[in-house]
Simulated scan of single mutants.
Amino acid sequence: MSRRILVINPNASLACTRGIAAALAPLPLPPGLALEVTRLAEGPPAIASWEDWHSVALPLCGLVEREPAAAYVIACVSDPGLEAVRAATRRPVLGMFRCAVAAAVTRAERFGIIGFVAASQPRQRRALQAMGLEARLAAWEPLDLPMEVLCEPEAPRGRIAAAARRLAEQGAETIILGCTGLAGHAALVAEASGLPVIEPCEAAGAMALLAAMRP
């Protein structure tokens, strides 16, 4: 069995992929287990629409079939292609959104989500419905920024901080970063909201580590 966790960004953004790798870098790995981050070069610039979401399923399956790993992580907080990829391999396949929600409900009764764009909300709500957890969503706030802007260290800070404060005002007790492009802004969200923050790369990376250590 391959001794690596393969983390796949289903969009083509280099900036987003670098942010995912940076968020995962502190993860402690046991000897002999590697963590690799890659991107779907033929993917869209971001997973913004249902068309984007559906378009990456088959390419993700093909990549997983070509690249053996102990576990796979789909590094998008809409979990595109999750069911299809699980059918393409016998190894564990984790979606970042579901991992983040699982982490959030261990911290608090009600969580809020900072979303990428408004069009992401139906996909995330559908996943929450499938998990039986939609009632624990306190509020959902979209940023509606391009991926490349979202990944910048300074340009999106004002809008991100404002969204974090609104979630706290609406009763969120913890906040999920609803896009991998937000990985570098976890500290800002915590400071602005005064709440614990669930960063999906960290949540999924930790769960993938446990999954990869099982035969």
Rank of each mutant, 00 (worst) to 15 (best):
A12P: 01
P146V: 08
G81Q: 01
P122E: 07
P92D: 07
A69I: 08
R90W: 02
L33I: 07
M147W: 02
D144V: 04
V189S: 14
C151A: 03
R166T: 12
A168C: 05
A48S: 03
V56I: 12
L133G: 08
A103R: 15
S120E: 00
G43C: 05
E202P: 00
P80W: 04
V117S: 09
W50Q: 08
L63P: 00
R126I: 00
P153N: 01
P31L: 05
L63Y: 01
P92H: 09
I47F: 08
L40T: 11
I114V: 14
L188E: 06
G171S: 08
A34Q: 05
I113K: 02
G158N: 08
A23F: 02
G158D: 10
L209D: 01
S13F: 10
A75R: 13
A34L: 06
R3H: 15
G184V: 03
E67H: 09
L33C: 08
A186E: 06
A161R: 12
T106W: 01
A108P: 06
G81K: 05
V117G: 03
A41M: 00
I176D: 07
L182S: 06
P215N: 11
G132H: 03
I5R: 05
I113R: 09
G43T: 01
L137C: 13
E83H: 10
C99K: 07
A161W: 12
L143P: 10
A204G: 04
A172K: 06
F111Y: 10
